[in-house]
Amino acid sequence: MIDEDKQEKITTKIWREVPEDDNPFAAAACYCAGFDVFGDVLRNASYIDYLYLLFKHEPPTAGASKLLEGLALALANPGLRDHSVRAAMCAAVGGSTRASALIASISVGAGNLGGGREVYTAVNCWQACGTDLAAWEAIIKSPPQEERVDVWMPMEHAPGFDPNGVSCPKPVRQTLAYLAEISDGNSLAWLMQHREKLEAFAKAPLAMSGVAAAAMNDLSLSAEESEILFMLLRLPGAAAHSIEQEKLGWRRYPFFGNGLKLMPYDQVSDED
């Protein structure tokens, strides 16, 4: 006979379950932050509201719900030229598992260039600088240096800006304008107002990751929450494009057949 009190447990503030009478391994009811998920939330909340509830343990205000909805829509498909979506399509054209398409997409879309890690770093900048233009100038021009190495490479550009950009692309400006219009916070509005000054400090135009970071800050999400949510919200496009390319196959997908040039190598050392 198992003493349930003595078993190791998983601690959570998010989720509670009530067992079925006939099976302690099946839930009869699931509560998310006190709300009955299948008896109440399912019928009465939107997906975005439930997503917010999972992270914040409170239902969103109407404004927060609208902002997260707008952000989710803007991020849902980065477009098929985006590195993360390309990763998903690479999986697809080779006939890999569909799970691997999403894994590949997250792996690639996790990084410092337009990925989850960039949003993490940018949200940390928001927390450090707020709406203080001088502080932003300082952090962009002299970013903090970590003494220890990390598995992440150091940032090579100002977080939230596109090192390969020329001017701020219209979809980024449209997203910023719309999200700033509906946000109850002041990060997006301030970013809208000071975008060009910040771009001058960064010597690069604002990127979608920078808009996302400001929106995440207006939603009072932590850097960690922002990083993981950003990766999650960008998956629908990767999924849809991978399914499409799976049907089209590798013959209709670029291989860059003439794109690689092998150069001389002169660093070979034989030791033993």
Binding site: T12, E17, A33, H57
Partner: peptide, 13 residues
């Protein structure tokens, strides 16, 4: 089993 969840959130329904 469901009892392996140590819930520390709101008790309020």
């Amino acid at each position: 089993r469901t009892s392996r969840i140590n819930y520390e959130g709101t008790e309020e329904l």
